[in-house]
Every structure is written in C-alpha cells, then in structure tokens.
C-alpha cells in the first residue's frame, strides 16, 4: 500500500495479536471514510482496496481466521437475493449485512404487524405498519452502510422474478408459503441460481441447498405444494427461537456457496428439532 495512504490511516490502525503468528493491524472505519473522501471513492471500494492488500477493516476483523482477507473481499463483491423479510429473512438480511455481503436484493410485499414481533428481528414498535423490504434496507444502513440494498416491496411471482433475481449469485428462500417457495425455486432453476431453502414450523425447521438438477422442494414435499392449512406452522405457529436458528444455517450455506466451499450436498436436508433437541441430516432420492 502506498506510503501516503498508510500515513493517512496511521492514527486509525488498531494493533492485534494473533496466537502463533505475527501481530497485525486492522483499520477503523473513520480512517477508511477519510481515505474515501480524499480519493473521491465509495467507502466500499476503499475497504476492498485495503482487503486486497491484506489490511482488515476493524468491523470485519473478527471474521479473520475463519475467512482470509481475500474471502472477505469476495463476500463484499457478492450479491445475494433474500426472498421474504420476515422471521427467517430479517435475520438472514441482518447477518448478511454484518458479514459484509456487498449487495442484497430484498423482496417482500408485506408490512410489519403486531403478530410479527415474537420472532421477526426487523419488526419493532417503530416499524409496525411499514413495508418489510424498506425497513430491511434502513436496518442494513444502520448496521453496515457499505452494503447496497435493492428494495422490492412487492410479492414475488413468475413474471417479476427474472428481473428481481438478475445480478444475484445466490437466492435465500425466506418465504412463508410453500406455493411461492416452489415458484421461486423454479425461477432459480431457470436462471441457474443456487436456492437456499429454509422453513420452520413449531420448534422444527428444514434447510436445503438446491442446485440445478437437485431433487429440491418436489423431492422433499412432492410435486405440488401443500396448502398452508396443512403445513406444520398452521398447527404449531412459529415460536421465537426457531426462525433465528434456521436463518443462521441458511446464512452458513450462503457463505459456502459464495466462497466455493463445500456445503450441503445434493439431496441433503438438515432437519432441526429444538424440542429434543436434535439436528439430523436427511437424504433425498
């Protein structure tokens, strides 16, 4: 990195120890903002330039060790569509923002209501009545302003999905009806996009990553989506802890997809039961 840049960032460098390795510095956001202003570049580009030189922004520094600087830069250059900004989606969106996925596409036609407060992390007294997708963008802005959010405050259907999903590298299924999940999965199949399914009912949930040619939702539930009235959540509701855990597992799958790490394999389904508690791998096909 050029000497004048290091001089500018000097006051903002934070020394860190690394057991068994040489110590290292990370840089505070205030310094990155100053550099961005001097260079007339977006903060995101400045962060990427630092990561490319192996200098970690302090906000991402705890990811170091699990991710390399190149991994973190790759996440920052990535684009993920989150379908649904409710119980699963709110948590997925907040985690992807903190993780530093550079672009999020958020699609939800709904508004927050009182019954969302038990589990939906973007639902607060302040956001009641507001559009979920828009509220998600505001929450991301307050957590990590370098993440660009494209808001689609509409319901997903066959005709608008190709435009919504364009530019996405992975799609996270955080919807709440099986019929729409099948439609989004089909749109992903046609676009060649990986589809990370998560669903909850009561204290149980499922996670599955679907790539082209995988059995997918039809392999799990049959060719036709079950009506909402027959699904587990109609009997058991969606209590507080389940969506957050399933969302975390979905985010872990998204990370692996973006970084090219092995994740859930073809036809593998994670089934979580917080009641027992147990987590088991099921195999389709």
């Amino acid at each position: 990195m050029q000497a004048w840049i290091m001089e500018l960032l000097g006051p903002y460098l934070v020394p860190h120890e690394a057991p068994g390795q040489e110590g290292f510095y990370a840089v505070r956001e205030a310094g990155l903002r100053e550099l961005a202003m001097v260079q007339h570049r977006p903060l995101r580009e400045v962060m990427l330039a630092c990561l490319d030189e192996g200098l970690w922004p302090e906000r991402f520094r705890p990811n170091r060790g699990t991710f390399s600087a190149a991994d973190q830069a790759r996440l920052l250059r990535s684009s993920v569509a989150v379908m649904g900004a409710g119980g699963l989606g709110g948590m997925v969106i907040l985690q992807l923002a903190r993780l530093g996925v550079g672009r999020l596409i958020v699609c939800d036609g709904d508004v927050f209501e009182e019954s969302n407060l038990n589990r939906q992390f973007l639902a607060t007294r302040e956001t009641l009545g507001q559009g979920k997708a828009r509220a998600a963008a505001l929450a991301v802005e307050s957590v990590n302003p370098v993440v660009e959010v494209r808001v689609h405050g509409v319901w997903a259907y066959e005709d608008n999905l190709p435009a919504i999903l364009s530019d996405a590298q992975a799609v996270v299924d955080c919807l709440d009806t099986l019929a729409t999940r099948y439609i989004v999965e089909e749109a992903c199949r046609q676009a060649g996009l990986p589809f990370v399914h998560g669903a909850v009912g009561g204290l149980e949930g499922m996670v599955m990553t679907v790539r082209n040619g995988d059995p997918g939702l039809a392999g799990l539930y049959g060719r036709e989506p079950a009506p909402k009235a027959e699904a587990a959540e109609s009997f058991l509701g969606v209590p507080t802890p389940t969506p957050a855990l399933i969302a975390t597992l979905q985010v872990a799958e998204v990370i692996k997809l973006l970084l090219g790490w092995p994740g859930l394999g073809r036809g593998q389904v994670l089934h979580v039961d917080l009641g027992v508690p147990s987590i088991e791998m099921l195999q389709l096909g």
Binding site: P225, A232, E233
Partner: peptide, 10 residues
C-alpha cells in the same frame, strides 16, 4: 422411520 408434515413457515 421418520414421518414429517409439510413445513413452510418463515
């Protein structure tokens, strides 16, 4: 033998 209903909540 594991028997499951449809699960679709979010």
């Amino acid at each position: 033998v594991g028997l499951f209903p449809a699960v679709g909540g979010g």
